[in-house]
Design a protein around this nucleic acid. Structure first.
Lengths: 249, 249
DNA sequence: CGCGGTGTTGACTTGCGTCAAAGTTCGTGG
DNA sequence: CCACGAACTTTGACGCAAGTCAACACCGCG
């Protein structure tokens, strides 16, 4: 499967050949950008919507005291900002975690596409609402879970999402985040993230080396995290260990 | 102004008389519910979208250990779940914080409306994207701000939103949240919320009594919170003290 | 081969949680 | 109109998870 957008959206629904063609068309013109590049800055009013073809990006906001909060992680197939077809100003910044190929889609093109195809329109709603659902889960993560569980949850989510777009192995995937990046995502210090990663290693749960994360025991990890993938709203998901446990108990 | 949905959406754009009529039509059939009632339960697949005409509601999720996280507060004019026209299962629960009047709009009606009127379609996208923007700000709040700032930020946001729909006085508004509710929203214990509220009182910032919040010094409060309302994407907002400071410095 | 960005470790501090007991407010029914 | 109980608020003593600071080690890259 070539087109990562189609691959992602097909987690929600199937498309006609015609729609398939329209989606493919969006991906043909792209540029290559390097890790660390800022795609869209807070306050800007971009006229393009960016589509990640390859590599990782992230949204972040900064607090008054300079603390950075990563509010979303984006992987291939994710649209960087549908927002801008309605909202005038970006309320956060988007930057790249790794080198990436990025397609810039003129906003009008996307709007036209939603008019042309009800299926695509619906699929874009789906993608937006899933992003929102992920934010809710992250808020639960930040507000209610201890650091150890939080990191476990983040690992489970990213493995599941990478899996869905065909970019994760059975046990491992590329995770281009430093420990500081993990901290900024989970609302923790890099020092504390380090201690947690150490502990996960000691307990045989994971290997994390050179931006490659290997999960040795996904079942145990998801139990620790209280991870239940239903918030990702994928059309077909297996029940997780946590769910099975809930059903049994 | 009668219709709270129209009042809210007009924070984004003006509507033709025809669209105005369509929006009014949505509000005619409503039921009255009491504080504490659950509107939609996690896991359900509702066939109606609820519109809050009156009173407050909230979305929440619970963690494995029983901790409750409030992931959204809803005030009159807010739509409880556009989600369900695309997503099959609710990933969170919606309940009432106060007695409320609620209009149930059949999902198909809403979908039809979006087809009939591009302006309404756009406005609903706007409302959804603003909800998402609020979630991002809450995540920043939870992840990066200290407890005192967090509560201050919550107060600033809710005053601003209540103001926008015409339900806040110059200095005060009805806030039907217990201190435990504030805690579940901000990721804090009710005990700690209490200590913070005490401190805010001592510093002359607020009066909080019997679900009525009075903000004596919004400017100071928003400076403490680092509150910048631009994430609410209202069409016309005054620059805040925090913004003025940033511009000056 | 050296440098900058990471990761690792230890000692120390602190904000917030926990537990537990009073105090207060409010709605309800006698 | 009062009495009662339930829900909410307040207070204090204490513990701990996570932050801070600082030094050092590692690793990959130019």
């Amino acid at each position: 499967m070539e087109n990562p957008l189609a691959r992602k959206l097909s987690g929600f629904a199937a498309f006609s050949d015609e729609d398939r063609g329209r989606l493919d068309e969006l991906c043909v013109r792209f540029t290559t950008r390097s890790a660390g590049d800022t795609l869209i800055r807070e306050g800007a009013s971009p006229s393009d919507v960016f589509l990640l073809l390859d590599g990782w990006a992230y949204r972040y906001k900064v607090a008054n005291d300079g603390g950075r909060q990563i509010v979303a992680l984006m992987i291939p197939g994710d649209l960087c900002d549908i927002h801008n077809f309605v909202l005038k100003r970006m309320d956060h910044t988007i930057a790249l975690l790794s080198d990436a190929r990025v397609a810039a889609i003129p906003t009008e093109r996307l709007v036209a596409l939603m008019d042309e195809s009800p299926a695509i329109n619906r699929a874009l709603w789906w993608a937006t609402l899933v992003d929102e659902a992920i934010l809710r889960e992250w808020l639960l993560n930040s507000g209610q879970r201890a650091a150890y569980e939080r990191i476990a949850h983040l690992f489970c989510e990213m493995w599941t999402r990478m899996r869905q777009v065909g970019l994760a192995e059975e046990q491992s995937f590329h995770l281009p985040l430093t420990q500081e990046g993990l901290g900024d995502t989970a609302g923790l210090t890099s020092v504390h993230v380090n201690r947690i990663v150490q502990r996960m290693r000691k307990e045989g749960l994971i290997t994390l080396r050179g931006k490659q994360l290997e999960i040795h025991d996904f079942e145990r990890l998801s139990l620790i995290a209280g991870f239940d993938p239903s918030y990702l709203h994928l059309s077909s998901v297996q029940p997780t260990p946590a769910q099975k446990l809930a059903m049994a108990g």
